Lab assay of single mutants.
Amino acid sequence: CHSECLGNCSQPDDPTKCVACRNFYLDGRCVETCPPPYYHFQDWRCVNFSFCQDLHHKCKNSRRQGCHQYVIHNNKCIPECPSGYTMNSSNLLCTPCLGPCPKVCHLLEGEKTIDSVTSAQELRGCTVINGSLIINIRGGNNLAAELEANLGLIEEISGYLKIRRSYALVSLSFFRKLRLIRGETLEIGNYSFYALDNQNLRQLWDWSKHNLTITQGKLFFHYNPKLCLSEIHKMEEVSGTKGRQERNDIALKTNGDQASCENELLKFSYIRTSFDKILLRWEPYWPPDFRDLLGFMLFYKEAPYQNVTEFDGQDACGSNSWTVVDIDPPLRSNDPKSQNHPGWLMRGLKPWTQYAIFVKTLVTFSDERRTYGAKSDIIYVQTDATNPSVPLDPISVSNSSSQIILKWKPPSDPNGNITHYLVFWERQAEDSELFELDYCLKGLKLPSRTWSPPFESEDSQKHNQSEYEDSAGECCSCPKTDSQILKELEESSFRKTFEDYLHNVVFVPRKT
C-alpha cells in the first residue's frame, strides 16, 4: 500500500485506493498535508475557505447554543480562536489581540433580562453583547459592586439597553466600559436606550469621564423622579442622539420631579488639616426662599486615587461607600458681607490618608415646582503625618564578641513616609551569675543571650482551647457569634421535631 494509506488498500502504491488515510483526505486521495488554498479540518480532512465560511455563517444565523462559528488559524479551520487571539470578521482569520481579548457573548432569543446578581454573573467577562440587555433589578445585597464585577467589562451592545423598574439602582456607572450601543435591534418605538419607572436612579454616568455613542435609535425617559433633566440632556449631547427624540420621548413632568437638581456650584473657602482632623468651610448658599434650606450634607471617604465619582458603590438597598454628615444651616444675616460661612470639623480620621470630599445642599421643593440647590466639586484632601507606631517583631542576635545583629519589621501604621529608623542602645553591667558559677561542674549549661522565638506554653494553649472559665478566673470563653447562636437554635429545633416524629412513629394507638 501507499505510504499515506492506513489499515489496508485495494490497489498497491495508489493513494486513492486506501481504506483510511494516515494524515489527511483531499478529493478522494490521501495526502501528507493540505496544500494551499485548503485548510486542515478536524485533523483528517482538507477543506477550502468557502466550506469553513459556510459553517461560520450557519452557526451565526441559527443562534443555536453550542454550535461553533468556525475560524481560520495556522492553516486550520477550527471552532474558535485560541487564547490571546480574536477573529477578523472580513476573512475569519485569528489575529493577536492588542491588550485583553474581546469576548463576544451571543444571547438566546436576542435579549437577556438581568433581574438578579445570579443572572448578571452569566455575563461575567463579556466585552461584546450580541443582542439586547434588559435591566430589571428590584433589590439585593452589595448590588453596585456585584454588577460592576460582572457587567463592568461590557464595551458594546449590538441591540438596545433597557432599564425598567430597577428600584435598587442609583447610577449606571457599573457599566464602566460601555462605549457603544449599535441599535441594530430596537425596542418598540425605535428606541435604543429605554429608561422607565426607576424610582431611585439619580445618575446615568459621570459624563466628564465617560463617552457613549448610540449609532441608531432614540432615547426614552419616563417616570424617573430623581433623575434630573440636565442629566438626560447631557446624554443626548454626548451620545449623538440630540435631535432624534420626539416631543413625548422625554417626559418633562415625570423626570426629576422629586430630585434636588443642583444648578449652582458650592466653593470651599477654608481648608485646614491635622493628622486626624480636617476643618472645612464653604461659601454660604440661600435659595430664593431661605426657609427652603434644610441644611447641608457632607460626604467623605478614603480615596487612594483621584478618580472618585459621587455615586460609586451606591445602591438604593443601603450600600453606600460614603460617610454622610448632616449639618444645620448657619444663622442668616441681613448683611451679605457678614454672612457666616458654614463648615464642619471632621474628626477621627487616619493620618497621612487622602480623602475625597464634597458637600451639597438639602432643600425642600418650592411652590413653583422649581428645584434649587448647590453642590461642590469633589475635592481631595490629605491629612498630615504623625509619629508612626512601633516597629514590629524586633530580633537581636550576637554573632561574635563585638557585634549584635538587630532586625525588625516595619510598623503596622507608618502614618507617613518613613525615611529612617533611630536605634538606641545602652551598655549593661555583666551578670554576677557568670562569676559565681563553678565551671568545672559536669552538665553545666552556660547562660545564653542568643534570641529564641517566643512560644506559647501548654497552660496558655489549654486556656485558649477551654470553653469555660478556669477556677483562677484568668480566662473566659469568647462570646458566641450570631451565626453560632442561630445554628444552635436550628439544631435544637431539629432535635425537638425529630423526637416528636419518633414518638408518633414508635407509639401507635392500640386498636379498641
Rank of each mutant, 00 (worst) to 15 (best):
P330Q: 10
E156W: 07
L108T: 12
G243A: 05
K360S: 09
D249Q: 03
S260D: 15
L180Y: 08
I154Y: 00
S398V: 03
E155F: 07
C317G: 13
E302N: 09
V117Y: 02
A303P: 03
Y380I: 02
R332M: 05
D384V: 13
T213E: 15
E237H: 09
N136H: 10
S389Y: 03
Q403T: 08
A251E: 05
F290R: 06
E283Y: 05
G256A: 07
D115A: 03
I214D: 01
I188Y: 10
K267W: 07
D292F: 09
L229G: 03
C261D: 06
S333T: 07
N255K: 05
V104M: 06
E368T: 12
R369I: 14
P342C: 05
K226M: 11
R202V: 13
E156F: 06
W344G: 14
T118G: 15
V390M: 12
T254N: 09
L280R: 00
D335C: 05
K103V: 06
Q203K: 12
G313A: 08
A144G: 11
Y194A: 12
T254M: 14
L349K: 01
D197L: 15
L196S: 06
F174C: 11
R281P: 00
I163R: 00
C126Y: 03
D377F: 03
I250N: 14
N320P: 05
F290S: 12
Q382T: 11
G125S: 07
K253F: 12
L266V: 03
L345V: 11
S132A: 10
G295M: 15
Y223D: 05
W207Q: 04
A303N: 05
N200A: 04
D384C: 04
S400T: 07
H341A: 12
K209D: 01
E262M: 04
G183T: 02
L331M: 14
Y167N: 15
E109R: 04
N320I: 04
L345Q: 12
I114W: 01
N248K: 13
I271S: 11
Y223A: 04
E283T: 13
S333C: 08
Q258Y: 15
F175A: 02
Y191C: 01
V104C: 03
N141T: 10
D115W: 01
M346A: 04
L147Y: 01
C261M: 02
T241M: 13
E231F: 13
I129C: 07
I114C: 06
G110P: 04
S269L: 13
C261K: 03
R164T: 07
S338F: 11
L362N: 05
K242P: 07
F299D: 00
T309R: 08
T254K: 10
N200G: 02
S269C: 08
P329R: 11
P284K: 05
K267S: 11
F290Y: 10
R164C: 03
K162C: 03
I250K: 03
S402Y: 15
G256H: 04
F175E: 00
N399H: 10
G318V: 08
L186A: 10
N320C: 12
A374T: 08
C261A: 10
Q121S: 08
S166H: 02
L279M: 09
D393M: 13
L161Y: 01
T383I: 00
K177L: 05
H222R: 10
S260G: 03
A251G: 07
L161M: 07
R332P: 07
A316Y: 05
Y285K: 05
D289Y: 05
A259S: 10
Q203V: 04
W408P: 01
E368N: 01
G139W: 06
S239D: 03
R272W: 01
S274L: 07
G348W: 04
N211V: 12
Y194W: 11
R347A: 06
P304A: 15
L212C: 02
G159H: 02
F174H: 07
Y355P: 00
G343D: 01
A385E: 07
N141D: 07
K253M: 14
G183V: 01
A144Y: 07
K103A: 08
R244P: 12
Y355T: 00
G373W: 09
K409C: 13
Y167T: 12
K177N: 15
D315M: 07
L178E: 00
I214C: 10
W282N: 01
T273G: 06
E187C: 13
S208M: 07
N141S: 11
A303V: 12
E237A: 03
K350A: 08
L108Y: 05
S402D: 10
E109G: 15
E148G: 07
V390S: 02
F296Y: 15
I129N: 00
K375T: 07
P329L: 04
L172P: 02
R347L: 05
L349V: 05
S239R: 12
G318K: 02
V397T: 10
L279P: 00
I214R: 05
G152M: 06
Q354K: 06
A149F: 15
Q258T: 13
I379Q: 13
A120R: 02
T383P: 00
G189F: 12
E184I: 11
G313C: 04
K267E: 02
D289V: 05
I405T: 03
D289A: 04
W282C: 01
E148W: 06
A144D: 03
R347Y: 11
R165E: 07
E302G: 15
G189Q: 02
E237Q: 13
V363E: 06
L172N: 02
I278S: 00
P225V: 09
T241E: 04
W322L: 02
I154V: 11
H341P: 12
F275S: 15
I232G: 02
Y191W: 11
L280T: 14
P391V: 06
L204T: 10
C261S: 05
E187K: 14
G240R: 07
S132T: 12
L362P: 05
L252T: 09
Y355K: 00
H106Y: 10
K103T: 06
E187G: 13
R247M: 09
L161A: 03
T361W: 03
R138N: 15
S132P: 02
E246P: 12
L172W: 00
G131A: 04
Q245L: 06
H106G: 04
H222V: 05
K177S: 07
S173N: 12
G348Y: 01
W282Q: 01
Q203H: 03
L204I: 09
S321R: 12
D326P: 05
P388E: 01
P410E: 14
R179V: 10
Q306L: 11
S173I: 07
S260F: 02
A195C: 15
D393V: 08
N320H: 10
P411V: 08
R176W: 03
D393K: 15
K103S: 11
L186G: 15
G348S: 14
P287T: 11
E146H: 04
N190H: 12
L252K: 11
A303E: 02
V238R: 09
I157S: 00
Q203T: 11
L293R: 02
W322P: 02
R281T: 01
D393I: 02
Q403M: 08
M235W: 03
N211K: 14
F311Y: 15
R370D: 07
G217V: 00
F174D: 01
D326V: 02
Q121R: 12
N136A: 06
R291D: 14
Y305C: 09
G152C: 11
W322V: 07
M297R: 02
N224S: 02
N136Q: 01
K350C: 14
L212H: 02
N248M: 14
P388I: 01
S116C: 15
